[in-house]
Design a protein around this nucleic acid. Structure first.
Lengths: 363, 363
DNA sequence: GTTAGCACTCGCTTAGTCAGAGTGCTAACT
DNA sequence: AGTTAGCACTCTGACTAAGCGAGTGCTAAC
């Protein structure tokens, strides 16, 4: 069977009605809608067809129709209009985003909370996976007789450090030599490369005098590299799920929160997702806990290379169009922020994509 | 009316029974308990007295008795026995605690998750408030032509850093001079002192050549100091509240999670609490959202000075005795970990408080 | 002072009823 | 042939009533 013009129209109406109300949509409700000149009976016939084709379901005989995941997929791919955000909305996002400190981690966390506030959903933001970050510079600094600080600067601008207790005496000169040697050996390598081949081992044998120092420093160096690979996941608006009728059931709410609390799991799932804006709907999600949810994620980049993710999670019945636009704008903004590292932002991001302004907020 | 021996015994029995089952305790149940040689009727009389005195309440006429907050307070202060943890339990905690990396923040977060796992409650852990942390050492390091790294080492061993984009050219020498000057000016000051009196301002006027550099560096210095003051709050086991019958009501669960999600609020509340083990029960909590809950917190210290908090939050009906012991042991362990900075722990913490082993797990 | 007995009170569960919403089908209409 | 009105049917959700069980409070006897 073909999806006629009218079927599409009806399907779209059902979806947006259901997104708004969370109630199964009946034929009478639809026929009363503006622009619908068909009687309930006609609509019922079309609905029956749509159901046969897998776009609608029936909670029970005497209930209205509910869109299936397949319907949402069609909606997202073809039916929905992507409203440009209004200037005001954009301004709100941009301002909120820059009200925070310049600290990277905080900005990411803040982005998550903005997203959750605007969408009224549960949101998350992930710091970039730094596997590909390149070591630029390694330094050892004397703090006191038995403490030095190991510092690793990477191309992305991230500086990691670690205090190291030295078990052997050291001199400023030997520290400097060790720093230089380490930099020489590791500079230009990615963090993950550096982790896999422990180059300094060779070095130790060469300069015996320094092997004691190296023994103190290297384990800490490795630990620090490992730390650099860690991805942080920020989550906001957990309690928003309680606003969603689907989760007024305690056991459902429970498993939702339980799932989200497992940060490692969640992080892994998010990393695996494609870059760019990605929408997965209901049973398209592999995780069984997620099959009642939809996930919208997008990626931002730092310095044009490292890629982090940000997104929302909510019921399949969510405002895909609006939320997609919001996330898109937010990630553009983030990427932009992390490009002009030093903080002097240009303020014309708003107009970046040409002027297609203030229109269809169809929700 | 006096609290006779028998009344106390009955009250204690009601409390521990109720803690275990979450069901109102009836007179028959009690009379069947081992060591209770009184008939239900006798017990009923005593119960009536206890209710009159404010230690018990009645959800409704035909229900059993439920302890009041006043009863829990009595229980915590006088009735409950504080079981020493068994060697096994201690070993589990200690091992779990040290299975993590040496990274400070991670250890704290990990402590929270251990606590939540063991107690099956929602737990939290707060990094220390560093207002009193003393600046030890400030350094500026050249990374490339336009980037330097600002590094602040504090007495507590914490190293903070920030990449600074320089708008003016600089030389290694001038960097070193600026580092030295800053160290000279700020060394020995606490972070909060340093924040309040911006000493370097004077310096700028003295050495004109450096004022450009200082202008780039100082705002970042201040930002970094502010960052150092930030307290992180880690929370674990949020979904554990769903195990608690009291929170099977969605709206209750909601307000619980909502409250906990407001990290700033929570942090403030926790900071305000007394150090040492502190138990607040039900309406003893000022916050109205917390009046159905009890809070047990304890403080750990870093290097004998900075103080952080860790604790659990749960229904007033919680296993005070066991949980208190667990938290006490955990904080001792944490404090100890952060004393022997370099990581070589002695393994005799278990025996620190003398041998009073393997007894009354009365729950 | 303690206990047995008994009437009484609630809350929870199950079954039963009823109104409302919505469907599916058939037959009539355009 | 597509559209519509009408009607029987189904299912849910809210409400009500009855019965059970747990537990109390009181009285009178031990």
């Amino acid at each position: 069977m073909e999806l006629s013009e009218r079927k599409l129209k009806i399907l779209q109406a059902i979806i947006s009605e259901y997104i708004k109300t969370a109630e199964p949509v009946g034929s009478r409700t639809l026929s009363k809608k503006e622009g619908f000149d068909y009687s309930p009976a006609t609509i019922r016939n079309e609905m029956a067809d749509l159901e046969e084709m897998g776009y609608l379901t029936h909670p029970h005989t005497s209930a209205g129709r509910v869109p299936s995941d397949k319907a949402y997929r069609l909606y997202v791919n073809e039916l929905m209009e992507r409203p440009q955000l209004s200037k005001d909305e954009k301004a709100i996002i941009a301002n909120r985003l820059h009200e925070t400190t310049v600290d990277f981690e905080k900005t990411i966390a803040h982005a998550a909370s903005i997203l959750s506030e605007i969408t009224n959903l549960t949101s998350f933001a992930m710091t970039p996976k730094k596997t590909e970050d390149v070591i630029k510079y390694i330094n050892l600094l004397s703090v006191d007789e038995e403490t030095v600080v190991l510092m690793i600067v990477s191309e992305s601008g991230k500086v990691s450090n670690k205090a190291v207790k030295m078990s052997v005496p050291y001199t400023e000169d030997s520290l400097e030599l060790l720093s230089k040697t380490m930099t020489y050996n590791y500079k230009g390598k990615t963090v993950s490369q550096a982790l896999t081949n422990n180059i300094i081992a060779n070095f130790e044998t060469d300069v015996v005098a320094m092997s004691g120092m190296a023994e103190d420093v290297m384990p800490n160096f490795m630990k620090t590299l490992e730390d650099m690979l860690n991805v942080n996941l920020y989550m906001e608006g957990l309690s928003n799920i309680f606003d969603i009728p689907e989760y007024s059931d305690v056991s459902k709410a429970r498993s939702f929160i339980e799932m989200l609390s497992q940060k490692e799991e969640m992080t892994k799932k998010l990393i695996e997702r494609d870059d760019g804006i990605t929408v997965t709907i209901g049973d398209e999600n592999e995780d069984s806990n997620l099959q009642d949810c939809s996930l919208i994620t997008a990626s931002y980049s730092v310095d044009g290379k490292l890629v982090g993710k940000i997104g929302v999670i909510g019921p399949t019945r969510m405002k895909y169009s609006k939320i997609t636009s919001i996330i898109e704008y937010l990630t553009e903004n983030l990427t932009d922020t992390f490009k002009l590292e030093s903080g002097e932002r240009t303020d014309d991001i708003d107009d970046k994509k040409g002027e297609n302004e203030g229109v269809n907020n169809n929700e």
